[in-house]
């Protein structure tokens, strides 16, 4: 299952970089998931790297970077690579932070808001239904707006918080990308697994090239192991880059 450097059309493959922090544990899952897509290749980036040469998309994977001690993502954001990720994002590069990666993006200020501990105070690992709120951005355009997808979550601190002004801004700019929903796509309290404000599961920055989400799309890219609803995220990126 190795990545092919060239697509069948002969143009360059879309290049993903997966950052490995000490304590990352979904790095291999992200790498493996990306590598299964035709026209994509993946490589690992060490947290001490300072260059992101030739990459199209950087993935900050899930896990417990630096043990998540102090606060989730609080130490990782000072890793040398985060400077490069910030520059990359400022230049319009695509950055996706999944779970712990989302927490790091928040700590780093690349996305607004903060994470509290889950309302139920326990780690929650389960499949959840997500409603796609914004399907007109690089990470989700392969989905339809309002589409309900099933993707797992696995976290202790995914209870998203932002102040009123920030929330209005997110809403006004269509920065709320996915929300926890029930099977029919209704945003209900019961469908909220962690107490997140407004059932928010994933947001993007104003220029929609930085995307953070608590659910794990890389875990549902193969129906043998739980579903394929997550493929759309990576397919969206691949399409977006190819057509850019």
């Amino acid at each position: 299952m190795t990545a092919s450097p060239q697509t069948h059309t002969g143009v360059h493959a879309v290049r993903f970089g997966v950052v490995v922090f000490p304590g990352s544990n979904c790095d291999a899952d992200s790498y493996d998931a990306v590598s299964t897509f035709a026209g994509a290749e993946a490589r690992y980036l060490w947290h001490k790297d300072e260059e992101l040469d030739g990459l199209d998309c950087v993935i900050l994977p899930g896990g417990f970077s630096y043990g998540d001690y102090l606060r989730c993502g609080a130490i990782a954001r000072f890793s040398p690579i985060m400077k490069a990720v910030r520059r990359f994002a400022e230049d319009g590069g695509l950055v996706i932070g999944i779970c712990n990666g989302f927490q790091i993006l928040l700590e780093a200020g690349l996305l607004p808001g903060a994470m509290h501990r889950n309302e139920g105070l326990r780690f929650v690992c389960q499949l959840v239904n997500l409603r796609v709120e914004n399907a007109a951005m690089p990470f989700t355009h392969r989905y339809d707006e309002g589409q309900v997808i099933q993707v797992p979550i696995a976290h202790m601190e995914g209870n998203y918080f932002i102040d009123e002004a920030g929330l209005s801004e997110l809403e006004a700019n269509k920065q709320i990308v996915i929300r926890y929903a029930n099977e029919s796509g209704e945003i209900t309290g019961e469908a909220n697994p962690n107490g997140s404000q407004g059932n928010i599961a994933g947001i993007c920055n104003r220029t929609s090239n930085v995307f953070g989400l608590m659910p794990h799309p890389e875990r549902v890219c193969d129906s043998l192991v739980g579903g394929a609803d997550g493929r759309g995220v990576f397919e969206s990126v691949i399409d977006f880059v190819k057509n850019r």
């Binding site: 899952d29 493996d32 929650v124 389960q126 696995a154 043998l224």
Partner: peptide, 16 residues
């Protein structure tokens, strides 16, 4: 119990 365990990481679970 198992909801508190990350039983999906490594994406190998053919049977949950």
């Amino acid at each position: 119990v198992y909801r508190q365990y990350d039983h999906m990481v490594q994406t190998n679970n053919a049977l949950w």
